[in-house]
Computed example of a mutant assay.
Amino acid sequence: MLLNPLLSLSRSPSVLQRPSSLLRPLSSSNLPPIQGGSSSPSLYCRSLVQRLDHDAFLTSYFWPAGRKKDAFFALRAFNIELASIQETVSNPAIGRMRLQFWRDAVRDLSNGLPPPLHPIPLLLSQTTTPSTRDLTAYYLNQIIDAREANLLDPPPPTLTSLLTTLSTTSTPLHLLSLSLLTPTPPAYITSSVQHLSLSIGLTNLLRALPFHLSRRRAVGLPLDLCAKERVVMEKVFRIASGKEGGEGGLSQVKGLREVVWEVAVRANDELMTARRELELEGGTGFPVGKEFMPVFLSAIPARSYLQRLEQLDGDAFDPSLQRRHWRVPLDVWLAWRRGRF
């Protein structure tokens, strides 16, 4: 019998991945089917997260069983659905119509009204209490607003503006996850989670680069950094689509690796700040209490990616970075045992 049940997950075939928590895998082969439905919202959300948000599924093993774990799956499934809208619609008007469905569902949740017959609103309704409805609706509406603002895929002008965008998408997602564990977390925990969410958001952006470039989508890299390193995005898109050759492909595009490196450095800085926040303002430092640790486990896949990116000298297009790393499940388990990330 395995001492660590997560080790069995690392033995599944490696699949070329879009970044977890944002996008779906490129290939659906060897992935579990979506199960459940309106008759079993919990099973549906769990299956959706297992299939399309592998990082979150790894950390779910350490969430308290029952309502809190179901609420976590509902939240992550909600995030998957919203992120997929931008990927599946070509007309912003259609995207806004789909987002309106989720606005209406959140409004009904906030007002205590019966949810629509969709597994995700059903599970959100089942796991939200009258005392938490307003806070849940507040964070969910923040995510919806941010997704609508980004329907046109505008590239951020600066790294600061990119962080501002992440503070309205990744940060509400993680703060709401924290509130599921404890309604009134200490200030130092909240501050640490905010910085952690920015680190994860930046890391997911880098993980998405190969996929987005292959589809000629805006890659989210700050325009000021691209201009500074003289990166010509049109040339990058031509190489990514195979319309223009180049020795070494995207890995050798002038300046692109430097832009990736600057974003990765900021992601690592935010991760380091998240750690330091635990020791400031009355924080208890490490080990982190088990009542908060499930949220901080999200740092482990991001940390693993940044470490491997550093080993590859900032080459975000190395194929090894697009596969699940065998050690991540083990590192998640060790982080839980030690209370450190």
Rank of each mutant, 00 (worst) to 15 (best):
Q126G: 00
D145T: 03
L152M: 13
S125L: 10
D134R: 11
L113Q: 13
Q142V: 07
T129N: 12
L151F: 07
L117P: 04
A146G: 11
D104E: 13
L117Q: 14
P116C: 02
D134W: 06
I120M: 10
L117D: 14
I120D: 00
G112E: 05
L124N: 08
L113H: 15
H118T: 07
A149V: 01
G112K: 09
G112P: 10
R103P: 00
I144A: 00
S125V: 12
P130K: 00
G112H: 05
A105M: 11
L135I: 14
I120N: 01
V106L: 03
Y138A: 08
Q142I: 06
L124D: 04
T129C: 03
T128E: 01
I120H: 05
P116Q: 02
P130S: 02
L122N: 02
S125A: 15
R107D: 12
L152N: 15
N141K: 05
D145C: 08
T136M: 05
G112D: 02
N150D: 15
L151V: 11
A149P: 01
D134I: 08
L109F: 09
L113T: 04
R107I: 11
L135V: 14
H118N: 15
P154F: 09
Q126P: 01
I144Q: 05
P130Q: 00
T127N: 08
A137T: 03
L135W: 02
T132Y: 01
A105Y: 09
T129L: 14
W102P: 03
I144C: 02
E148C: 07
A149W: 03
H118F: 10
L122V: 12
L135C: 06
A146C: 14
R107H: 13
L122R: 03
L151G: 07
H118C: 11
